[in-house]
């Protein structure tokens, strides 16, 4: 959850992303807003509907801010949960269009 030398902030998601985690995850996104962000989902074991809402909302916010949002590494459980919930991992990320 520290800034890297490249100026991109990072956010490591906790293992359990259920009801009790949603508020903290939202807070973490809000404090990192306005800068490129790399989200690390390597530890995620469980993903619930409300944390998914935060991820979807964050992606929309980063896109609106035209900041990059990356999913760095994802645990298998995280990817399986996204699949179950009908969310392709791609739609959680935002890539700034490369200038011509």
């Amino acid at each position: 959850m520290e800034n890297t030398h490249s100026g991109t902030a990072t956010l490591a998601l906790p293992p359990i992303l259920d009801l009790t985690a949603a508020a903290a995850v939202l807070e973490n996104f809000l404090t990192r807003r306005g800068k490129p962000l790399s989200v690390n989902a390597a530890e995620v074991q469980r993903l619930g509907g409300q944390c998914l809402q935060v991820l979807l909302c964050a992606r929309a916010a980063w896109a609106a801010d035209e900041q990059e949002l990356r999913l760095d590494s994802c645990s298998e459980e995280f990817l399986a949960a996204l699949d179950l919930l009908g969310v392709p991992p791609k739609i959680l990320t935002y890539c700034k269009e490369m200038p011509a």
């Binding site: 508020a23 979807l56 609106a64």
Partner: peptide, 13 residues
């Protein structure tokens, strides 16, 4: 879904 700053983390959208 609302704007991120408007999001109730324990809401349902």
């Amino acid at each position: 879904l609302p704007e991120l700053s408007e999001l109730d983390p324990e809401g349902a959208y």
